[in-house]
Write a protein that binds this DNA or RNA. Structure first.
Lengths: 174, 174
DNA sequence: CGAGAAGATTCATCTTTTTTGCCTCTTACC
DNA sequence: GGTAAGAGGCAAAAAAGATGAATCTTCTCG
């Protein structure tokens, strides 16, 4: 029983972005950090974006950031979204050639177990995964990267002082 | 996230044997019933035997039967024994090249979820999987098979009765 | 004791899924 | 317009899983 690397990386990307909430991170940067090919990571990030966990800003100075605060990103849901095939056994799918199908309790029993699994994850958010040490390991100071759009809100937050750009969306998410 | 067919078949074999507790079933018979090759099923059964769930009697008239009553066979343990690799993500294993290793809470979180999964299964026994319908579908009357050693415990279980033959066979014992 | 019926083992192959990377396109800032 | 970013399609490579053939061992029966 495995979770795909796909999901695994997705979670790590979220952790990375969570540890660097104060700035934008590019895929290039993350793939370098995790030693995965850029293109590969791209697909994973893509899925994260499509599912609304991450925001991607194109163009020069662009990058990635969490689409909402880490505390509002549930791990269970991430796994559900990223793990394409949660059918534990064949008979979970519609079609089955097992002669027990229909009378078999196995499906229900495994289904309950799966619910327990995901339920357990549902009680955790990305914020719970972010320990102080992680911040230390992963967080890269803005200076080391250079200032980016993230830090100069083009559309600008009214108050100005806040450096957590949670609501600085500067374009229409199509 | 999948359970291997290996484990799936193992559970089905147990169900089959549970539905036919009153007699011995051969691998040949089961493999025919499930439309799997004999050799393949053999390996699975073998593992079940080594793990003490099933008893295999060799020689003419031999076959398989549950090593203990269905109610004493826990599904969680079966899955644990059959599923070779329960490491959900890479960092479950000793070696890991993830730069988060050590500080990452992901492992613990997934570990808890896995425990919840198996724990759910631990609350079920093989007996719970055996619905009356299954008995009907799977149970093959002794007549249809021919009498076997099963009912004359020459080798095994001198104590005899144990829990099994509520279903008295038409054959003379010993 | 010998034959045949069962399970036990080994080995090789095939299939499917997963993982990976390349190449090209689109978008958007500067 | 140039360049830096993400988006997407294609396909190769690798790993894991599933399957089957052939052979060996053990055991009961006659």
């Amino acid at each position: 029983m495995h979770i795909t690397l796909h999901t695994d990386y997705a979670l790590r990307v979220l952790i990375y972005l969570g540890a660097n909430e104060h700035r934008l991170a590019t895929i290039q940067e993350i793939s370098g950090r995790f030693e995965v090919s850029r293109s590969h990571l791209m697909k994973i990030v893509n899925q994260l974006i499509r599912n609304g966990y991450v925001e991607g800003l194109r163009g020069k100075g662009g990058g990635l950031r969490l689409a909402r605060p880490a505390a509002r990103i549930g791990i269970g849901q991430v796994v559900r979204d990223m793990e394409s095939d949660l059918a534990l056994v064949e008979c979970f799918a519609g079609e089955s050639r097992c002669l027990l199908t229909g009378s078999c309790r196995l499906r229900a029993v495994l289904g309950n177990a799966l619910d327990a699994f995901l339920g357990s994850l549902d009680r955790q958010t990305l914020a719970d995964l972010l320990s102080p040490q992680q911040h230390e390991i992963l967080r890269v100071p803005v200076d080391a990267i250079g200032n980016r759009r993230a830090m100069r809100p083009t559309t600008a937050v009214a108050g100005g002082g806040e450096n957590r750009p949670e609501n600085t969306v500067d374009r229409d998410p199509v």
